[in-house]
Amino acid sequence: MSIAIPSPSALNFLAGLFAGAGINMLTSVSTGPPDPEISTLKVALDSALWVIAAAFLTWAAHLLEAAEREADLYIAKKFNEAEKKELRQEYRSRALRRARLPLVLTGLSLVSAVLLLPGLIGWHRVLGG
């Protein structure tokens, strides 16, 4: 069974979205009207988590991209299509193994960032504050 491995460009695109979300959040707080309901520190932390998630995802995309480049350099003209396909798949699988850490870290950052979104969960109520 072959695993569908995301392409580096898709990961980079997602990373761009995450970073954009984080930065957008920061700029909207800094340029928008002050809201006593929302803690600026919490927003800053949340936006930082978005950016960190983007950074981890870029790391993962870089690993996959490097693997593709490796595969390109290894593949010779005389290789047949099946060999080329398998080699690329093999390099990607290896890269995916190396990319586990950044992907897990992306997931964690992302979950934390979502949970910290202002207004999504009233943490003071949940924690009985």
Binding site: F79, E86, L87, E90, R94
Partner: peptide, 18 residues
């Protein structure tokens, strides 16, 4: 030459067949 160019760090089943 063709055997040598497949003698690398990665060897897949298609390469083995080749």
């Amino acid at each position: 030459e063709q055997i040598a160019m497949r003698d690398g760090p990665v060897r897949t089943s298609a390469m083995q067949e080749a």
